[in-house]
Design a protein around this nucleic acid. Structure first.
Lengths: 114, 114
DNA sequence: CACCTTTACTTTGCGTCGTCAAGTACCACC
DNA sequence: GGTGGTACTTGACGACGCAAAGTAAAGGTG
């Protein structure tokens, strides 16, 4: 048990990972390293051991597909993209996120720190 | 493994629980059932088995204290309140939340669903 | 071709934590 | 002194992020 800011930050990040990844992939087809780089840009640090299993889960759930593409600098890459079902799912996650943001806003409204 | 909206919603909720609870308690002293009710108002469903251990962790970490108070309709209640350290921690969580919201906004900016 | 580096994908095990479910305890009222 | 409502506790379980080690493909260098 380790209740510090870093840990809580990690907890919060976990909750939105799926959503952010699907959202990134909905805008443009990418392979995992691209996704990690994009997330890093947004200050969401994610490592391989987190991303790969998650992508696999999303694929198994029918939200993602991928195609192999050759690379000039190493092994071939898996380029992921949303399926129609994935797009539908993403729309629901948009609402879910908005609801959560509303909920947080509501519970923190009278927070003296603000 | 069960990748549906309900599950993802639960995941997101997990991430902000600590924050919301501390925030509620910073505004006013409460006992667990009050907290559950307030969270429910904000559409954040939390059950006893989640809240009690979390409050204990927050107390053990030095962020909360409690005092017993008699009740007219049952056993005495533990009224929780933030410690000075808890207030400091909460301030940091405010920043953490803002950062996360920014990050999500950034990754979802080009999401066609929006 | 043997070796090394870089890049990409995979997998195992661990730790944390929310949740379920069952249990304990206190109080009021009849 | 049962009975019902309220409050707090706890053990087992499962999901999942993450660290770390492993496998594999391509290219460069001699």
């Amino acid at each position: 048990m380790n209740l510090n800011v870093e840990n809580t930050k990690a907890q919060m990040r976990k909750g939105v990972l799926e959503y952010c990844i699907l959202s990134l992939l909905s805008a443009e087809e990418m392979y995992p390293s691209d996704v990690i780089a994009k997330l890093k840009d947004a200050k969401l640090i994610v490592v391989e051991g987190t991303l790969y299993p998650l992508l696999t889960r999303l694929k198994d759930a029918g939200y993602l597909t991928y195609r192999w593409e050759e690379s000039r600098s190493g092994p071939p890459r898996k380029y992921y993209q949303l399926t129609p079902v994935g797009r539908k799912f993403l729309k629901e996650l948009d609402d879910t996120w908005d609801e959560l943001a509303q909920a947080v806003k509501k519970t923190t409204r009278n927070n003296p720190a603000r």
